[in-house]
Amino acid sequence: MRADLDLETIVSELYSPLYRFAFALTRNETQAADLTQETFLILTRQQAQVRDVTKIKSWLFTTLRREFLRGLRSQSSHPEVELKPEHQDQLVSDSAVSQAIDAGTVLEVLAKIEESYRMVLELFYLADLSYKEIAVTLDIPIGTVMSRLSRGKEQLRTLLAKTEPPTKTFPHPR
């Protein structure tokens, strides 16, 4: 039988990466904090449905992403909203970007990367998920995760090279 979840320990270990992931999605501190709180609240309400405790991390990031998309859809007059970089830019509020400049720069670069690659990269860097966890979170095959990570990093490296001074570029010998 599944042991009861130790919610306080889970919060303690995962609220920071969840918030970072939420911030990458919303680019807004308040919305990111609300989204993080809501995600843990959903876990509290639905913990009986979480049968595999080892997948709790993937479950949380999946839930947060789903809640973000649900919020986007409810805000829009259109039933479906495609997460393109242009749309992400619209979500940036004047007061939101009070984070460190370096983090902001990386997020801006990430926002320019093609959506399918960007999601994998954000889960890899912000959520620190393994390739298997990313596959579960996005419901895609493991091989697809690896190829998207590889190509996504290639795009990231190229964009960072254009953004940063030459001494901080990341040459790609491939």
């Binding site: 609220y15 918030y19 970072r20 904090a33 843990f40 984070q99 370096d102 983090a103 997020l107 860097y125």
Partner: peptide
Amino acid sequence: QKLAGIEPPADLQAKILARI
């Protein structure tokens, strides 16, 4: 390292635990 600069609000953990 750069993304680690995104710090959650100081009271976020406490708020989450209170709501839970």
